[in-house]
Design a protein around this nucleic acid. Structure first.
Lengths: 230, 230, 230, 230
DNA sequence: CATGAATGAGGGTTCATTCAT
DNA sequence: CATGAATGAACCCTCATTCAT
């Protein structure tokens, strides 16, 4: 019995260590989301980050090498979270116009419900959206589908893209400095659909549709770092 | 001669000194515009600024007290320059829809023609537009006039404002990363007018109108710091 | 079978464990020799050492407590290795002059043949030779014997010691930056014998004698870490 | 009179500033000599350097960028100082054998008289002598001249170079750990001349010649940082 | 007012060492 | 004993700001 080769001790230790690393990484990303939102994405963040996360200076450098590294990690995590939320809607809804309107409203809705997310996105601006699937994959696909199907009588998608994304970001900024009036997001979506060529009544009716309640996984980045729902 | 009663010699010296101050101030603002555009508005700027302007560290502090001071000064100067360009158009054009379309196109046109300006506005983002008369006075006025006159069938001006400003800034960012395709600005303006409620043909025809050539004073900030026209 | 009375199982396990410790210790010392040679004896070494040796950080601290500890261990090991090589020659040769000449040539010969050793001795300089038996026991003994027997007409051994050791180390440094020309070691030994008072022809003939080929134990530190013979 | 154009104010200010820079540079080099001698040339030195020199952290970086920068600056300064001392002797003495013996003794004499210099040279070892004119220009020249004139019956200068330099450095190390016995330097020089081929009596008589007292400029690096004469 | 050397707070980064698993 | 994540002291470096000239 004492000749038994110790049942894969490495495996166990390795797995435990990997899990610990994973948890610490998440903890740092969560804290970074908060701090970036409060201080801006260009701020020198490390001191505040480690004190927020309650870890040592050295630990930070075991996970990231630069400020920029952290920003990228947070951006990726945020993008993934948002996709997880939006994906079900996107698959259920066949109309690109509706998908765009819902996308704008969900984006703003998330930012409103999770102030940390809103602050981060607002502070980070375009830089933080570089790899955002919601914006860089879903939206272009919807615009193209809408144009090709004749629903959007537009020649180019680029101006439409700028219009949808720009409008939404402008509203996000407005939210950060005082909050959005009731119905702002819906009205904005309505304007966007108008611009894309829908008739006024249809634009309005699509943009006003009730939005299903968001469902987040309990271990979600937003749920944990979001500062709780508004 | 300089032994004469010296008719108010202080006046003369004072005036000369004031002019010198004025010139140095402009020189610093011009250099700052360039440097902010290249390095971003959050960068540590002073070293590069004074070497660009060719003055000493101490001189800088005779004119500004902090980094932020400089940013404000540049923003104000830029805003004034832009107003000086746009004002004639604004007074000549009675239709608020046309004024908005022209405003968007001129804004993007200036940024394109003067890369330093474009870079500065893009890098500075919203922060730099805080006191911009073009955006914060002219645009709201036009939107209200359009709504009140029934030309824009909208209830609120805020979403429309976000849409116009956001679209334009998104196009500005696009310009900074690769330039705008031909006709992008006009098409964008056309989308904006559509969103504001104009019929498609009218939106298009207004947005496509030829734009008068910009005229800059020879001593203009843009003419001097803009790196020359594109 | 393993249910047998197990004749002194502790003995066996203890012995196996001791052998494992011994092997790990050697592995660390070998790696340290390499790393000290490449990066210098003052470099921060532990990271590179453990990755070279392929062990974990914690394991290192099971064998050494500080950087300096490792340096001492390597120095001792190196000194012992060198003695093992030189001892046979020293016992076989009755003439102190010949022993000194052979010692200088063997020292340089080993450093040349085992680059890792050469780099280590050169980088470590005097610090690493503190406990070196070859230098601190054999050489003084030879000098005293030569002086007392009248072969070296010198009053003090200290200057002679400095001359022999210093010359050899200078040649070692030369070797590290470009290698030694043919015959350099022999000529140097000849100069040393001249300085010790031998007639020119005798000095030369002793210093030129052919050197027996070095023989290393196959498990020798040098054989394993030396990077193979040159 | 008040129209007078201020007689070259820049010249004056510029000159004063340059002198200030010069003085600060010297102050830093002096302090660095001390600190390198105490802590070794590989030590992290900046903190101690600035506190020794009594300047701020920032000032250091106005003059040097790295640890290595400082080491080079000190090495150059030391080399120049030593040359200034040795040069008169070198020019007055036609015999290369005598020049070499005097060189060795002066080198060791300086190191003994100015402990800071001795410590620095000893700690820095060969690295610090890279650009040393005394060693890299004067000595090779003397060896070649001696060989070509037949005074040194040697075929190669390289082993002789190693012997002279190595012996001297070994004595320097001995000095650092307990000081040199009386006559050590002279005896060492005598051994060196013997090795170079001089007859014993001549070697001895040259190496024993009284050495003229060293004269240092009062603003010399050694006089100021040397910790005073021994 | 212009100059530029000096300052030092603020932040960045490494690495020897500890310790729970 | 082996492992490797976590620690924090000790460095490194920049740059906004001051101030004597």
């Amino acid at each position: 019995m004492d000749r038994q080769p110790a049942p894969a001790p490495e495996d166990h230790r390795t797995r435990v260590a990997a899990e610990r690393r994973e948890r610490m990484h998440s903890r740092l990303v969560e804290s970074a989301l908060l701090v970036f939102g409060q201080r801006g994405v260009d701020a020198s963040i490390i001191d505040e980050l480690i004190s927020t996360a309650g870890v040592s200076r050295g630990t930070f450098y075991n996970y990231f090498r630069t400020n920029e590294d952290v920003l990228v990690a947070v951006s990726v995590a945020v993008s993934n979270e948002m996709l997880r939320v939006v994906d079900p809607f996107a698959h259920a809804e066949p109309d690109p116009a509706a998908r765009i309107a819902v996308g704008m409203r969900l984006f703003l809705g998330l930012a409103e419900e999770f102030p940390a997310l809103g602050a981060f996105l607002s502070r980070g601006g375009v830089r933080v959206l570089r790899g955002n699937g919601l914006i860089n994959e879903y939206l272009p696909r919807d615009l193209i589908q809408g144009r090709d199907s004749g629903r959007f009588p537009i020649a180019e998608t680029a101006p439409a893209f700028d219009m949808v994304v720009g409008s939404t970001l402008a509203a996000l900024h407005r939210m950060q400095s005082g909050g959005l009036p009731d119905g702002h997001a819906s009205t904005l979506a309505s304007l966007a659909l108008l611009a894309l060529g829908l008739p006024a009544d249809e634009a309005e009716s699509i943009a006003q549709r009730p939005l299903l309640k968001l469902e987040l996984a309990p271990d979600s980045l937003l749920a944990r770092a979001g500062g709780g729902r508004k």
